[in-house]
Amino acid sequence: MAALKIKKGSSSHSAYDLRDSHSQIESSHTLAVIVDNEAGVLARVIGLFSGRGYNIDSLTVAEVDHKGHKSRITVVTRGTESVIDQIKAQLGRIVPVHEVKDLTVEGSPVERELALIKVSGTGDKRIEALRLAEIFRANVVDSTLESFVFEITGTPEKIDAFADLMRPLGLAEVARTGVAALSRGV
């Protein structure tokens, strides 16, 4: 109980402990959140992430059970194990949330994303874009003499790779849906 020696520049005299106790390794998790499709439910989920300082890398949402008015929110987030556990617990206590599944913990899930990618150009670049699209199994869904719109489906990494290749060939615009994911097996 000797007098406390506070060092110069220390934050220990602050009203809060300013040291971050969560400075460990972060990993990415894909969560599936089953919710009642009622007004404001998405705002509740997003508000939780922003209000508590969690990350959202990808977010998709749509009603998957029209009769039961249930929506599935797929959210890809990053954090340490304890933060991921906290995110799941916080999601779980939102009243219209029925279930929170951590697809990453259940085993590497099937993840797919759809993207529309517009590439403008003429000549060799245009031909090269079309050739690469074939390799990536991207479909042409719109075409003018100076542009293509490709539709591509795959993992986020595959879409990243395709977009990167298109960049020098005249990448004009990208629209992505975000990840939809299911666990493997039954």
Binding site: M1, L4, S11, S12, H13, S14, A15, Y16, D17, L18, R19
Partner: peptide
Amino acid sequence: PSGKPHNEML
């Protein structure tokens, strides 16, 4: 004081 453990009470 904040940031101090329980056994360093003032």
